[in-house]
Nucleic acid binder design. Structure first.
Lengths: 105, 105
DNA sequence: ATTATATTTCGATTATTCTGGAATTATCGA
DNA sequence: TCGATAATTCCAGAATAATCGAAATATAAT
């Protein structure tokens, strides 16, 4: 994952409403939840929710499948995993002169 | 870590310049790097860099120690770890339907 | 004390995001 | 077809963020 993409994902997660949405979906598992259920949990206007969902989809953090009238939202676990592991991918690999006791992951 | 804090961290990482800074510091390890070195790597004006660093410090993603004229920046590994693991902390624990007294509209 | 270096703060400008009401589209059931 | 439900798009104002030159601060070296 390149930096631009990762930053876009982080930006998508960088709003407490949107983070709540994603955590809710992660909690729900691969089946995800319909937009309406998310709305009930968060208690925000539909237009605001749509706006946030659009950003999450655009960043690739969640996906959506239509099921009739209902739009079901799932987390994209691969993307989230990629994001999390990117933070430490090149951890402590260099640019330092001193012997470093590294710790991470 | 509460949602507000986590969102603030994500927001801090949600800008490609700032993400670059953090990845650079993670790469450098616990010793971190002076502001001047970061500046050389990123090639952005000092005032812009300061602005970004302030946000990273404010979010708790990095820390700074003054060493004479030089201000050394380190990643906060605990915070980053906490952030990464939060994403999956309650993964797939369920929430298919909340016992809603009101019937789903 | 003077000068150079490292970094920040100030201030102003431009750009982007957040928010939610109203109107709209799409789907379903009778 | 009609009416209800699910969700989006459109719009616009308010709020916030990004950018960077210039001036300021703090420390060090001479």
């Amino acid at each position: 994952m390149d930096i631009e993409t990762a930053a876009r994902c982080m930006e998508a997660l960088g709003n407490s409403k949107r983070l709540e949405i994603v955590l809710l979906l992660v909690k729900a598992g691969p089946e995800g939840l319909p937009v309406g259920d998310i709305r009930q949990h968060l208690e925000i206007p539909g237009s605001t929710l749509s706006h946030h969902l659009l950003q999450l989809v655009g960043a690739g953090v969640i996906r959506q499948d239509r099921e009739g009238r209902v739009l079901r939202c799932h987390p994209d676990f691969d993307q989230l995993n990629g994001l999390a592991s990117m933070l430490f991918a090149e951890c402590c690999t260099g640019i330092t002169a001193e012997p470093s006791t590294a710790q991470a992951s």
